[in-house]
Design a protein around this nucleic acid. Sequence first.
DNA 1: AGTTTCTCGATAGATTTTTCTCGATAATGG
DNA 2: CCATTATCGAGAAAAATCTATCGAGAAACT
Lengths: 223, 223
Amino acid sequence: MQNRTDTTRTIGEHGIPEPTLRRLPAYCQVLRRLAGRGLKQVSCTRIGRELGFDPTQVRKDLALAGAVGRPKVGYCTEELYRTLENFLGWNNVEEAVLVGVGHLGTALLGYTPFDRYGVRIVAAFDSDPEKLGPHAHGVQVFPQTRLPELLRRMKLRIGILTVPAEAAQSVCDLMTANGVIAIWNFAPIALSVPANVIVQNEDLFATLGVLSSKLAAALRTGS
Amino acid sequence: MQNRTDTTRTIGEHGIPEPTLRRLPAYCQVLRRLAGRGLKQVSCTRIGRELGFDPTQVRKDLALAGAVGRPKVGYCTEELYRTLENFLGWNNVEEAVLVGVGHLGTALLGYTPFDRYGVRIVAAFDSDPEKLGPHAHGVQVFPQTRLPELLRRMKLRIGILTVPAEAAQSVCDLMTANGVIAIWNFAPIALSVPANVIVQNEDLFATLGVLSSKLAAALRTGS
DNA sequence: AGTTTCTCGATAGATTTTTCTCGATAATGG
DNA sequence: CCATTATCGAGAAAAATCTATCGAGAAACT
C-alpha cells in the first residue's frame, strides 16, 4: 500500500501489518537496554512503559513476531530479544551497497553501527569523480559505471539508494538487473521494480515535518 | 498516540491526522522537483503517481494543509508549494540545538541541507570532552554543562536529542527547563515533558526493520 | 455551441489499526 | 492452602485511516 510497483503481487508479504514491523526495531533496542541492566524477565507492560505504547499493542506485536510469554511472568528478556532479532534477520549481517554519496549518503556512510541492525555497507558509488576514493569510514567510493560489475562479483542483495529523485529509477534498474532484491530508497519517488524485489521507502523528514508543523501551529495559536 | 507524556492534553494538536503530516514533506520535495522542470500546474493524480500514493489521499492531505485547487486544472505548483512550506513552518528557519555527538549526532551535523527543512543546527553539546571543539561543518561542540546557559542566551526553541536512551530524560529536562518547546527525539524511549512541549520521536531503523524482516521472510520462503 | 475529458471536493463505504474486555494461568503473600 | 495480583492470549469493540463513488466545474476539442 505504500509502494506502488508495476506488479500485481508484492514479494515479502508475510501478513504482518506494517505498523507492527516498524515498531519491532524499537522493541529490540529497549530489550537490549533492559537486558544490559540485568533484567531477566520482562512484561509487555514494562516495554510499553519504556516506549509509551499500549501494553496490548506490544503484546500483539510480539505475538506476531512469534514470541510466546507466560502469564504473570512475561517473557524471558534474552529469548525475546533473540526471537525479534531472528525475525528481523538481524542476527546475520547482510552486506549492502550504497549509491549516491551526497549529503545523505555521506551521513549514512558515517553511521558505522549499522551492523547492529543487520546491514554492513561494503561499497559505495557515485557518478561525481570528485567523490571517488576511500571514504572516511573505510568504505571505498567507486565510479558509478562499475556498479553492475561489482554488484555481481560481490553478490550483494541489499541496495541503499541515496541519489536525487531524478536518478533514482535508473540506478534502481541497475541494481535489480544485477542481483539486488531489497532496496532501501531515500528518494521521494515511487520506484518500479520486478515482482521479486522488495522496496522500502524512507523519508527522513517525515517526522521533522510533523514536529515543525505542530510547532508552527502552536506558535500561531499561542505566544 | 505516539508519545506518552505525563500530561492529559497535548500541545500542537491541530486536528490533522499524523499520517497526513508525515506525508507533507514528501509532497514538498515532489513539488520542488516538478516546479524545477517548469510545471506550472499540478494535479493530485500527478503527485500521487510520482510517490505511489492514491490520488484521493493526496487530495485530502493537501486540503487539510489548506490548499485549494481548481477542477480540471489542479493546483498552481508554486502556490501549492508555498502553502505547504508555510504550513510546515519551513519558510522561516528555526535555529536548533543538538545534544549527543555520537554516531547519529555526527551524521546529522554533517547533513547540512537541514535549513531547507526549517531547521538550522547552531550549536551542539556532548558530555565527552574528547568530542568538544569545532565540528567539521562549522558547528561548535560545547561541553554539556553549558547547555542551560547557551540555550537561554540563544533563545533556542528546537532541541534534537541524539543521546543514549539512558541519558535522554535528563537532557530532555534540561532542555525544557531552558526554553525548548519542540524536541526531535532519536532515543528509543518515551519522554516525559511539560504540557506545552512538543515531542516527536524518530526511529531511523523502523523502515530498515520492515525491509529486513521482509527480506528475511522472502529468503526463508523462496530461494 | 456542444461534447468530452479531466479534476476537485465531499460523502460514504471498506479496511486497517488500535484499544478494550475477559478468562485462564502462574507466581506471591498471608 | 487459599486469596490476591500480575500477566498472557484471544476475541470484540472502537477508532482511525484509506479507498471508492458521485456530482459539479472548467478547460479542450469537435
